[in-house]
């Protein structure tokens, strides 16, 4: 389906995740974050860039991977992106929701 975010029509799935990363930009990220009640700081951006790089390298994302990478302590990750940090951060970063089964 299509959704207009920051005045740009983009393709999203039922849960609001962007379907085409090439449509993502920083304004869209700010708007998606705002919908989640988050104002993006430098610290948020650092994590968003990190997740996008991992996604481009085709590396699956997990809380464990984040923990092991040392990019951010998990408690802090929760503080930045409340209510399921990996899911929320992936949504804002314009990358698919981390995979699960059914």
């Amino acid at each position: 389906m299509e959704k207009v975010i920051a005045n740009i029509p983009v393709k999203v799935n039922e849960q609001g995740y962007l379907l085409d990363f090439s449509q993502w930009n920083e304004d869209i990220a700010r708007e998606l974050a705002r919908e989640k009640g988050i104002v993006l700081t430098d610290e948020h951006w650092r994590i968003i860039r990190y997740l996008q790089e991992k996604h481009k390298a085709d590396e699956p994302l997990s809380i464990r991977g984040i923990k092991k990478s040392g990019i951010i302590p998990i408690k802090e990750f929760y503080r930045l992106f409340p209510g399921g940090p990996l899911k929320v951060a992936s949504l804002i970063a314009g990358i698919p929701k981390p995979k699960s089964c059914l």
């Binding site: 699956p60 997990s62 809380i63 464990r64 981390p98 995979k99 699960s100 089964c101 059914l102």
Partner: peptide, 9 residues
């Protein structure tokens, strides 16, 4: 605990 797991169901 965390995903992925063997036989997820």
């Amino acid at each position: 605990s965390e995903m992925p797991i063997k036989c997820p169901v």
